[in-house]
């Protein structure tokens, strides 16, 4: 139980609460519901245990689903992001020796942005596909994924700007 684990648990709980109690009640344009608990995947250090992350991702989605009384869409989307995060990291930061230990130790802005965009798009695609779960709603899925991703990214960016850039 080091300082990182405790702060991870606190982040976990606060993100679940923030998502369910605050952001789920946002209705930008009447239908956009930004999803910010993805910050957990940013906060979780890149070199930490991947198996644990999959379990935590499942729990994160499960709690969000549980409290907001939605189906299993958050669980599946969050679980998938947790599972595929190493691939996203490799795409965004490169598979070389200088891949960062965590999101905050890296100073390359473009790579960070690519990582966030990929993650949010992946999550939202899975989420909205599972919510609508029908080929007829293909256009709706695309529209919601795109617009919600923009607002989620803006909110995630704002929240991340409060974190100091540790060297």
């Amino acid at each position: 139980m080091n300082i990182f684990s405790i702060s991870a648990i606190i982040t976990f709980i606060s993100l679940v609460l923030a998502q369910t109690l605050l952001f789920n009640h946002f209705y930008i344009f009447g239908f956009v519901n930004p999803i910010v608990y993805l910050l957990f995947f940013v906060y979780y250090r890149f070199e930490s245990n991947q198996t644990l992350l999959i379990g935590l991702a499942f729990l994160l989605g499960f709690f969000v689903d549980f409290i907001s009384q939605s189906g299993g869409a958050h669980t599946i989307a969050s679980l998938t992001v947790g599972f595929l995060r190493p691939i996203l990291i490799r795409y965004a930061f490169g598979a070389t020796m200088d891949s960062p230990q965590s999101y905050f130790t890296d100073s390359r802005r473009i790579n960070k942005l690519i990582f966030l965009v990929l993650m949010v798009l992946l999550h939202h695609t899975f989420y909205f596909t599972l919510v609508y779960f029908s080929w007829d709603a293909f256009y709706l899925i695309l529209r919601n994924t795109f617009i919600t991703s923009i607002f989620s990214l803006i909110l995630i960016g704002i929240i991340l700007s409060f974190y100091p850039n540790k060297k």
């Binding site: 991947q50 198996t51 999959i54 379990g55 499942f58 989605g61 499960f62 689903d65 189906g71 299993g72 869409a73 669980t75 599946i76 679980l79 998938t80 947790g82 599972f83 599972l130 779960f133 029908s134």
Partner: peptide, 28 residues
Amino acid sequence: FRNPILYFFLLTISLSITNNRSAFHEYT
């Protein structure tokens, strides 16, 4: 292969949750 195994195991669980909690998903 513990990560993929864990992933698909949890995916199955979440799909069954989805199935149980939503009549629409159950139907589909």
